[in-house]
Design a protein around this nucleic acid. Structure first.
Length: 688
DNA sequence: GGGTTATACGCAC
DNA sequence: TTCCAGTGCGTATAACCC
């Protein structure tokens, strides 16, 4: 932040120094950057960024921020003396309550490894010693050595900007295996002081050293000194430590004498209040670039002491939880208990790539993400029901789209099934990042059990294993899916022959792999059957393979019209919107429909549920269920599900998202047919 | 009106 | 030459549902 402004209207940039109003995180005080020419850094970052899409997006965000600040200022100025008096009383009361929670009985130590990644790399390659080193890439730097920091180079800075600041900067790629190894060594040391230490990251930890100090009759400073020496002996790396009555302050303290230093704040209220009084709010964990700017520009708050002095305004303009946090900071309060094991709340992965609007490419990335997420979830035994798709457009706009499902899932097929619907609703769009996050985990982990032998989607696609063992010779080239003809339509891919899942025990399949229990049940397009739609078949295979001469399985592919959901003959050069394949020898779809009938076009012949013909989707889903039920029974005798159709129909009417979906229908016709449905069931007549 | 869901955003490392 | 990350948590807000 180049300007220090605390009054309304002081935001206007100097026309001769436009970089001064370009808000970056890079000028925030960080250990090892005390002597840095902030003006120069600010100017270089501005010049390197100016005109880019990233820059344009930052300007948009900045405009939004200015508006937000203006709105808060307006609220601020509208407060009457009576309002202020009222809120002051509330604030005073709250301060007393918070003060009553102060606990000075514990001694917390925060350890922070010095420039950890860079230090490890230097340790492994001594030729880097004394040189400016950046761990990361031209896109992003994870850690900078102290030598590099003198030039203004720091973590979270793009490499190309860092190189401009420091042309002799040496880049080293990240190597998490290495860092994990050294992190484990440090943790062995930490255990000697607190068995229940809290690891904040690979290079940070909080230790409750109250007992150690007491039992050994030594001061907290002596413990910190000894611990740091032990870490150095064990790893060859230096670290810094902060000691204080709570974790929030301990973290602030560990930064004071960085690197290779320590600072002890005694367990004494007046010492704490003195310490906190002049402390810049940005030093507090949880107060970042945006919060700092709001507090400074709206209230004129720059130090922790100011938070108490402006307590009435804070209570007037912030939510209860935010106000509590700010007042706690002003009092120097923080966590003192040893928190119980915290359950993970979400699990995610995301990838940045060259911006593209190619839907086939984007889908392939979604396939990859689904597999990665599923693998991570299976590894941790997690089942989740809220799936969030994160997108970053070519212009750096970030969007998230979420869906909450009626049941818990973890398989890549199901993740992809739902993620693809979310993604398709966004098309056309040019993206540079996609991510998937699962949250809302099952408490008792009673989701559908994970099948460790389950094939991945890539196995599925790349092996062409869509008809069980009969497809063992089918080996599509990766390029089949990477050009514009990639069209394993992710909403239609499970629309293969109903027999496919029954053929999983085919001998050729068994020969192929011992773990071929393919738990993704592949269904026929029942809708087509029920409605008696003629299914024209292309006379030519969709995906030519290395050895296309094997015609034993007579693979047929049909394009599914993206808008009507109808199957139609698919010219080879027009496989844009999806295809399904039917293995004629594996059993025709019409064979499958015989078992299922709507009596009087109204009543299910199997379970008796009544669904009028106009309930097209519900009937589709219902028939899918019975078919899958039958197929699963035929396949293995395993009853993977105990969910009866009636229950599903009932649940469907009460899904929390149904109302929102109704709303979405207005603006997003591509999602209008979306109803969260259960595992193993995919409708094929959707508007994609 | 309170709880839930979807979305956006902030923050830390 | 290269051209702004990935993971996870928390909060705020609005819309919706019961």
């Amino acid at each position: 932040m180049a300007k220090s402004q605390t009054s309304v209207g002081s935001e206007e940039p100097s026309s001769s120094r436009p970089w001064e109003s370009y808000h970056t995180v890079y000028t925030n005080a960080k250990a090892g950057m005390e002597g840095v020419d902030k003006q120069k850094v600010q100017r270089v970052v501005y010049e390197m960024s100016k005109g880019s899409k990233y820059f344009e997006n930052e300007e948009k965000k900045d405009a939004y921020m200015k508006q937000k600040i203006e709105n808060m200022r307006a609220q601020y100025s509208k407060l009457t003396p009576q309002d202020i008096s009222h809120h002051q009383k509330m604030a005073d009361k709250r301060i007393l309550e918070l003060e009553a929670t102060r606990d000075l009985s514990r001694i917390w130590l925060h350890v922070d490894m010095d420039a950890f990644y860079a230090a490890v790399e230097t340790l492994c390659n001594p030729s880097l010693k004394g040189k400016p080193v950046a761990v990361g890439s031209m896109s992003m730097i994870s850690t900078a050595s102290y030598e590099a920091r003198k030039f203004g180079v720091r973590a979270a800075m793009p490499g190309f900007i860092a190189r401009k600041l420091c042309p002799e900067l040496l880049f080293v790629p990240v190597d998490f295996q290495k860092y994990t190894h050294y992190s484990n060594l440090t943790r062995k040391v930490f255990q000697n002081y607190d068995l229940n230490f809290l690891a904040a990251s690979l290079d940070e930890a909080y230790l409750d050293i109250t007992s150690v100090c007491k039992e050994r009759g030594i001061t907290s400073g002596e413990v910190a000194e000894e611990l740091r020496q032990s870490v150095h002996l064990e790893t060859g790396l230096t670290c810094s430590a902060g000691v204080a009555p709570n974790r929030l302050l301990a973290k602030v303290c560990s930064d004071i004498n960085k690197p290779d230093g320590q600072f002890v704040l005694p367990n004494d209220r007046s010492a704490i209040m003195t310490f906190i009084s002049s402390l810049p709010i940005r030093k507090i964990g949880g107060i970042g670039k945006v919060t700092e700017r709001i507090l400074k520009d709206v209230f004129g708050i720059t130090t922790c002491e100011d938070l108490l002095q402006k307590s009435s305004f804070i209570c007037a303009l912030f939510s209860r939880s935010s106000a509590d946090f700010f007042l706690s900071v002003g009092l120097g309060l923080g966590g003192t208990d040893t928190p119980q094991y915290k359950m993970r709340k979400s699990i995610s992965n995301e990838r940045t790539f060259s911006a593209t609007a190619d839907e086939a490419l984007l889908f392939q990335k979604l396939v990859d993400l689904s597999e990665m997420l599923s693998a991570d979830m299976i590894k941790e035994g997690l089942f989740g029901r809220t799936l969030t798709l994160k997108l970053k457009t070519a212009s750096f706009e970030v969007r998230t789209r979420a869906v909450t499902l009626p049941s818990y899932i973890c398989s890549s097929e199901e993740i992809l099934k739902h993620a693809s619907k979310l993604l398709k609703a966004e098309f056309p769009v040019s993206l540079r990042l996609m991510g998937l996050r699962m949250s809302h985990f099952s408490d008792d982990k009673n989701g559908i059990p994970a099948d460790p032998t389950q094939k991945t989607l890539s196995d599925f696609i790349l092996s062409g294993d869509v008809s069980g063992g009969k497809m063992s010779d089918y080996r599509p080239l990766v390029s089949d899916f990477c050009d514009n003809t990639f069209s394993v339509d992710l909403n239609s891919y499970p629309t293969y022959s109903a027999e496919t899942s029954c053929d999983l025990r085919d001998s050729s399949m068994e020969n192929q792999t011992s773990d071929s229990t393919f738990s993704c049940t592949i269904l026929g397009n029942i809708n087509e059957e029920v409605n008696g739609t003629v299914v024209p078949q292309s006379s030519e295979p969709r995906a030519k393979v290395h050895e296309p001469t094997n015609t034993d399985h007579k693979m047929k592919f049909e394009k599914i019209d993206s808008y009507t959901g109808q199957l139609e003959a698919c010219p080879r050069d027009n496989w844009q919107n999806g295809f399904s394949c039917v293995d004629e020898e594996a059993g025709s779809i019409s064979d499958q429909k015989q078992f299922f009938v709507w009596v009087d076009d109204y009543k299910c012949s199997i379970c008796g549920i009544e669904l009028p013909p106009s309930f097209t989707e519900e009937r589709q889903e219902h028939s899918d269920f019975h078919l899958a039920e039958r197929l699963q029974g035929e396949e293995s005798g395993h009853n993977l599900r105990s969910f009866v159709p009636q229950q599903r129909a009932a649940q469907k009417g009460h899904t929390g998202s149904s109302g929102r979906l109704k709303k979405k229908q207005k603006s997003s016709p591509t999602t209008s047919k979306y109803v969260p449905i259960d595992a193993f069931f995919v409708k094929t007549n959707q508007n994609f």
